[in-house]
Design a protein around this nucleic acid. Structure first.
Length: 302
DNA sequence: CTCGATCCCTGGACGC
DNA sequence: TGCGTCCAGGGATCGA
């Protein structure tokens, strides 16, 4: 489940591997997760990969203008462009030697000028790929929230402490913060000792700041360890991450809290499985019941 | 504004 | 062994 640290890991790997390469041709498999498949086939060949950036959970491949002969036409066809890639749940992107058998669920192959292929595989196709011009990229990036690694104390508080939504929902909301997913939301809430069902507006400034610092420390450590590999995350070199060994809440239902030995619980908050310590992360007042993961009717009082 | 429900999709886990 | 069912989850969308 690629979140900010995993996508950052992939971006760093790609930067090492494909920066400066030119795209010669495009081969597509299933395209139902690609915004405009024809645009990939027609607009990518001839462009050089000039930069690999991360924006929230998106990878952004900055592409040169089309070189050689082709002029930038009035509608901007040859102008610099970019390829936006979201890995969804199971997306992987990595260069392979041409001729190596295709992994199952390979849906995009970009033939590069060094003889390798940049391949995108995605079993569930929850990912997204889009060819974007300067204008459509700008539109795409509007509406994203703050970078959690850069956000200031003041901006974080102003985005969280005025909201009536649950803090778990706010952390997951890409228009509030960009890049946080289920794992790092739960980990940062555990570290900051905040229950996932608390409302943003009910957090004190001090708690919000504690959460911001916890989130930043966790994201930095996770990047240093090249992300969390839960089921199938692999970086651009095909290597798993290490941060899953440091999880304190996520995936630990029924196990003891590292701080207080209380059994970690799981409940559905903001529509997602949420792991928390019911002792360290006290439930907000008035929270009667939270749905449990199994069954629509099964409910439990906290 | 915020909520839950629904859909997308496949592989893995689990029950029988 | 094999089949059916449930479940994971990021994001879009829609109605309450």
């Amino acid at each position: 489940m690629p979140e900010l640290p995993e996508v950052e890991t992939v971006a760093r790997g790609l930067r090492q591997a494909i920066l400066g390469r030119r795209i010669l041709s495009v081969t597509l498999g299933k395209t139902d997760f690609i915004d405009d498949p024809a645009a990939l086939e027609q607009r990518l060949p001839g462009r050089q990969i000039e930069a690999v950036e991360r924006y929230g959970k998106f990878l952004l491949l900055r592409l040169s203008a089309v070189s050689g002969g082709t002029r930038v036409t009035a509608n901007g066809d040859g102008a610099p462009a970019s390829l936006l890639v979201h890995l969804g749940m199971t997306g992987q992107i990595a260069p392979s030697p041409t001729g190596q058998p295709l992994e199952k669920h390979t849906h995009v192959c970009l033939l590069l000028d060094d003889g390798r292929e940049l391949r995108y595989t995605d079993a569930r196709r929850f990912g997204r790929i889009a060819y974007l011009t300067r204008t459509s990229l700008a539109e795409e990036l509007m509406g994203f929230g703050a970078d959690p690694l850069e956000v200031s104390k003041e901006e974080f508080a102003s985005r969280i402490c005025v909201r009536r939504a649950r803090i778990k929902a706010l952390l997951l909301d890409q228009s509030t913060l960009r890049g946080v997913g289920n794992i790092y939301a739960d980990e940062s809430l555990w570290r900051a000792k905040i229950h996932p069902a608390r409302l943003g507006a009910n957090l004190s400034r001090k708690q919000a700041e504690k959460l911001r610092l916890a989130l930043q420390e966790i994201l930095r450590k996770a990047i240093a360890l090249r992300g969390s590999s839960i089921s199938d995350f692999l970086d651009a070199a095909g290597e798993p991450g290490e941060y899953q060994r440091h999880h304190r809440a996520y995936g630990r239902e029924g196990k003891k809290c590292y701080r207080c030995k209380t059994v970690i619980r799981r409940a559905i908050v903001a529509g997602r499985s949420s792991y928390f310590c019911p002792n360290c992360q006290p439930a907000p007042r008035g929270l009667g019941v939270l749905p449990l993961p199994l069954g629509r009717t099964a409910r439990k009082r906290y």
